[in-house]
Nucleic acid binder design. Structure first.
Lengths: 241, 241
DNA sequence: AACGACGCGTTCGATAATAGAACACCCGTC
DNA sequence: GACGGGTGTTCTATTATCGAACGCGTCGTT
């Protein structure tokens, strides 16, 4: 079971210990993907049970965690409400564009932003006959060095800011992507699926990308990229205009 | 500008003051819907600036907030990653069903759960020719006493657990919805839109509902409800079976 | 230019919030 | 009935936190 969140913050002590531990409760719960007992959280946190108990009651008051019938802890629905505020203007502008692009292309289209060397999918829209339904759900994360969206995002970063695992082959791909304005990938993030991504650079915002996934086909890749570029341009003019 | 989050927790002092304040930073940011300065957050929190500063640095380390070019604070992308863990098994089971229902009905279908007297939309899928694109985005909240999903959810609660604002008319509607297995609403949550919702009761989980919105039409409402019931049954058997 | 208003980041001591031990309880089950 | 695993509460020493004070840069304005 791979860890979703990196909890190796023993070296870098957070400015606020209590807040950091409380957030780690949320990370542990998201990581577990199944309701946990207080004792399990206690063990994972490495603190006394009464401490974890106090955290959980506080998180409960804010609706960020809930308890199921057996008293186990799970993430609360209001966390989803909080997350809807993440780049909500970007999402508001991008969603109609994603929908239009997805329907015109017949492909799942999604919006990706950079988050500390990782790509996070903020929104995704599926076309009618969806084949990769569960593939890119909002909140999905994967390294920025993998996949078309990652390359499209890397074109917006100076090579010095690239993550350490960036090899020459990837650098070449990013370079080409920067020149022609779009990136592609095959079987990288999702096996047997291809992807096209275009960069979406916005003022005062983390690098982003708009992407589409599709089954290997004889579709003209460049035309897909053109369609995505149109959407990206529309979004950019709406937000930065 | 209506407040999204109720920050009237001056009476109910949270068990962990620090954690509660840190979470309120997130709520304030989600409420503002625009990047804030540290001073603005400080004023809203009612604490000293050095305190808010410490919170923000901690939140920043966890990726829950980011800073734009001007140093202003906004919610971070990793918050979306956290939120994807909310009822992720329910979402995983419901999304394909929502997609199928949305395409077959030609309506936007979405999944709603109860959160402390409010409905929270966890996932929504739009059909090809979407008309209410921006209407029901994940994370949207509205009172449980309004709209078809709310009624479908109220059928799963004992009347004693209903919120205070529940009048007789609503009670009658909920009663009928409980009898026939689905609820409907007109122009309640979204003006000029109708909605149908069916309850989705799951073991050890908050009451939920599957719903569809559509423009006023001569479509047979009962047939829409039947389709939603089929999806709800499929989800229920997958999770509780 | 000088000024004030506004913003950020840091240091530091007193204090209050926290940490963790200990205790009481409930519920299965062996 | 004892046991193990779980929860919730109370209490005190300690420690993390709080908030005042300070320094600094950057705007606009007079």
């Amino acid at each position: 079971m791979p860890k979703i969140f990196d909890d190796s913050n023993t070296s870098t002590d957070a400015p606020s210990q209590t807040l950091s531990r409380g957030i780690r409760v949320l990370e542990i719960l998201a990581d577990a993907r199944v309701p946990l007992t207080i004792d399990a959280i206690t063990a994972e946190l490495g603190v006394h049970r009464s401490v974890a108990y106090r955290f959980i009651r506080t998180l409960e008051q804010h609706g960020l965690v809930e308890r199921d019938a057996g008293g186990r802890i799970r993430l609360g629905a209001r966390l989803a409400a909080l997350a809807s505020g993440v780049a909500h203007d970007l999402q508001a502008e991008a969603l109609p564009e994603l929908t239009a692009a997805a329907n015109e292309l017949g492909m799942t289209c999604f919006l990706v932003v950079l988050d500390h060397e990782e790509c996070v999918t903020l929104a995704s829209v599926e076309p009618r006959h969806a084949v990769a339904t569960v593939a890119q759900r909002p909140g999905t994360r994967h390294p920025v060095t993998v996949g078309a969206p990652g390359k499209a995002i890397l074109t917006q970063l100076s090579p010095g800011a690239w993550p350490v695992g960036t090899d020459a082959a990837l650098a070449a791909e990013v370079h080409m992507a920067a020149l022609r304005g779009w990136a592609e990938s095959q079987n990288e993030v999702i096996p047997s699926l291809h992807a096209v991504a275009v960069p979406l650079a916005l003022r005062g915002r983390r690098p982003a990308a708009i992407a589409a996934v599709y089954l290997p086909t004889d579709r003209e890749v460049a035309s897909v990229a053109e369609r995505l570029i149109a959407s990206a341009t529309a979004v950019r003019s709406a937000l930065d205009g």
